[in-house]
Amino acid sequence: MSRPTSSTSAALKRGAGALLGVLATLLLASVVSFVVLRAVPGDPARLIVGPLATPDVLAGVRTQLGLDDPLWLQYLHYLRDFATLQWGYSYSNGADVTAVIAARLPATLELALWAFLFAVVGAVVVATLASYRGGALAGVAKVVSLVGLGTPQFWVALVLVLVLGSSGLGVLPGPSGRLTSFLEPPPHVTGLYTVDGLLAGQPIVFSDALAHLALPAISLALIPGAFLTRLLTANQADVARAPFVTVVRSKGVSRWAAHRRHVLHNALLPSLASAGLVLASLITGSVLVESVFNWPGIGQVLVQGVQRQDFAVVQAFVLLSAVLYVAANTAADAVVALVDPRLRVSTR
């Protein structure tokens, strides 16, 4: 039964709890990224000044970078700089890290969002058909999703390129970046070429960008898609056994309508939280695929940063990943709380 008086304060409490959780997670991530990067061998000041610099010069750079300050002070500066979007300058080439990441983030975001769309749509369609039809189809879906989960991403990417890409059948472009070279990128609004192309009324740009996206997005979508397929199949199988499905059928509702309206709906809710994590992992986990497809995203920046022991770049990337994860997770929780009546804040 409803208890209207308690629901508001309970919701506030829940919101406050969630916020505290987010802050704690971020703080922990920042400490870990800070400590780990300080703990690995290699002196960034030496990297900047080069092997031939005099100790005086080296000491000057160290002071300038704040590397002589006590660790806790360094950590505070690091937090402050991150929060104010001053992510420092690359130790290796002096570029403004914030600017580099800002320039490359849209490419990664666009790739991740499309991969997410492919993964979710694919998973919903396959899982629903498999659990509705059952039999051989369910078996095939199970095997395919198992194989999908076990297949290395870069291998899939390479096979796709060799079979469908420009070096194979040539059905789709790639690996050749985000657009065919003779096309101008659309006017910058969101930084996502497909979206901006549509906004600017340039269908050619849209379709070309989508064609370039297709192979990397599919490679990226495969593992999370297989994961979501398995999750959704299992959830639907559970829900389909619930007594309320029999009750829905007893009203005269057809099996397909009952499955669509009730089984799928109930099975999707617990998958939403996982979908948030999948999106975050797609954004931060595209490094390999970006390399294979020569995709100008942040993955490539990260690879270079690691190779050159570039603290500023790696640090910014690690903390940004943490923020993205937490944001995706919180957003997913919020969506679940909005759409699941059992968690929804009662306004009555």
Partner: peptide, 14 residues
């Protein structure tokens, strides 16, 4: 028409 055993699980919770 049918009235089923357990009212707790016989209605779609969402």
């Amino acid at each position: 028409s049918l009235v089923f055993q357990d009212p707790l699980t016989s209605l779609d919770p969402v």
